[in-house]
Design a protein around this nucleic acid. Sequence first.
DNA 1: CTAGGGTGTTACCGGTCTGTAACTTCCAGA
DNA 2: TCTGGAAGTTACAGACCGGTAACACCCTAG
Lengths: 196, 196
Amino acid sequence: MTDGIVERPRPRDRILETARDMFHKHGIKGVGVDAITEAAGTNKMTLYRHFESKDELIVECLRANAAKAGAMWNAFEAEFPGDKLAQLHAWVRKAAAMLNADGRGCDMANAAAELTEPDHPARLVIKELKEAQRARLVTLCRDAGIGQAELLADTLSLLFEGARVSVQTVGTEGPSTQFVRMAEGLIVSFRGAAAG
Amino acid sequence: MTDGIVERPRPRDRILETARDMFHKHGIKGVGVDAITEAAGTNKMTLYRHFESKDELIVECLRANAAKAGAMWNAFEAEFPGDKLAQLHAWVRKAAAMLNADGRGCDMANAAAELTEPDHPARLVIKELKEAQRARLVTLCRDAGIGQAELLADTLSLLFEGARVSVQTVGTEGPSTQFVRMAEGLIVSFRGAAAG
DNA sequence: CTAGGGTGTTACCGGTCTGTAACTTCCAGA
DNA sequence: TCTGGAAGTTACAGACCGGTAACACCCTAG
């Protein structure tokens, strides 16, 4: 019986969580496996028992990020069941909150900027996961009864993506401050025109 | 008299040009100074006679990029003298062309993603140069007689920035294909509302 | 012709990186 | 209590990194 005390996560999970955090903060090439394992309270050998290479660890981190993002979408549905328009507005608010969370952009985009080898295993999963997110936003727009749902979803996607890199280059006081206004304006405009 | 043959650029310029190209293609941390000098047809010692460190070389590369971008703006003015609206549309076309040029995003944004140390010398110039570009786009929108010029300029900025990272993650067939339509639609919309 | 600065060459330094080998320690389950 | 597997430890291999020292070369300005 080990009740009463908080179970310390297994080494694999500690490594994964620590790596996610450090990759996010310092970039992928800016962090070595030694630093990860030390911060995770373990050692390099244990890392290589659970992940066959740093590249595989990177991929697993990206997948974990995507899983967390997926949970976010589910939270929208749980908060506003059936009300797709409210969920869309929740997405806008959540996106805006992320902009001010820290000065680092999207982990997928940052990884894509760093890992330039065209056949790097991470590039495949980045594309996969980004496309999945796009599909989810398109569906949300369509189910909200918006005509030209793809165009609105793509526009919102690009705005958000751009806002995240803008925060990374000029900080939170730049163009990204207008993100909510832009997004809400677009939604109104798309709802007004041809509610097909 | 060395007429008749093309003057080979001096080592410093060859290094700068080669570094710009390699940083763009492979990322900053993905390229070592040895590789740069070898590709530039010179050697490491010569590099360190002209640049006091790799960091300074990075900064000079970013400045060179900005200078090239500045020349682009001047080309718009030369092509459509006085016609600010035509220059704005030229910007949209040029931006779209960049999206399909190669799969790599903005060098400034990529550098910001890689160089995470908050006091890295490159971060200062990135912020400077991005703010200068934004100011230029705002001025163009304002001079084109558009009300809410800042909002339009910021929206176009974020769209373009987002399109560049989108190209880097999902390729040229993703949301970025809609960039021109989005941008032109926004310009029309902003011109329609309150030509203050 | 000569002097000197820009350039090329080679070797090296200390550090860091990913990844591995060999061995010990710990702990849960039978 | 015994056993087997997971985890920790130490040391190392081989490569690459940014940066420097010492020296040979070449070309041009005087």
